[in-house]
Design a protein around this nucleic acid. Structure first.
Lengths: 113, 113
DNA sequence: TACATATATTCTTATTTTTGAATATATTAA
DNA sequence: TTAATATATTCAAAAATAAGAATATATGTA
């Protein structure tokens, strides 16, 4: 299992709108840097910066084909994670019935303030 | 489904070692602020700050029982997300066989540089 | 009422993250 | 060799995040 630090590292590196978009594309298949330029409204150097970051943390890798760099996913958790984020949850979790300390069971009911 | 912005927001708010620890505890059940003091090596005001942040983003909520504030999970994605992070993945994703642009199939093979 | 307990808020500072601009490198083609 | 293309790097500035200290608030109890 990932250590706490690894979990945080992984979550942080994908917690960015551009990087999530990049990953959503990469689950569909390989993409070169210039492919990303077509649907991200940022400049090429910035795309490279994000890709470099993702690679640095072991989320993606690339291979070279001529002057193209073809990026692909390597971290096996990413597809599952993205799928989970795509899920629809219609309800909140059930609210606990009582306080475990006082056992008073004040809740459910009015919440002061 | 969550919007891109909501996904980022959710991921960011849980991308912190203290907040993950808090959430890992909360999946087990309700906990008051002072309960967290027992296993987090930070001061109470800082714990409150993290809890307030989590509440602000709809991840947790609390009810009051006397002077205790009993926190609990409300965001239904959290337990599934934490479970996913606990999973073991032994292999990287399969590497693609060729570049979709040039179809050259340079990879697998040597990667220059 | 006065005090103790449980928790929150505010403010400041330090750190990290993000972006943009400019530039550099590598590969291919002419 | 020169030029063009594809991509990366560096640096500086801006913005967001995090933590600590001090203090405030609310509730319960003597």
């Amino acid at each position: 299992m990932l250590s706490l630090g690894q979990k945080v590292e992984l979550l942080k590196v994908i917690s960015h709108p551009v990087r999530i978009k990049i990953l959503e594309e990469l689950v569909k298949g390989v993409k070169c840097v210039s492919d990303f330029e077509e649907f991200l409204e940022i400049r090429q150097p910035n795309i490279s910066q994000h890709l470099t970051l993702l690679r640095h943390f072991g989320v993606v890798d690339y291979y070279m084909d001529g002057r193209l760099r073809c990026y692909f996913l390597v971290h096996p958790l990413i597809p599952d994670l993205l799928e989970l984020l795509r899920k629809d949850y219609y309800e909140s979790l059930p609210r606990p019935a009582c306080c475990p300390v006082t056992k008073k069971g004040v809740y459910p009911g009015e919440r002061k303030r």
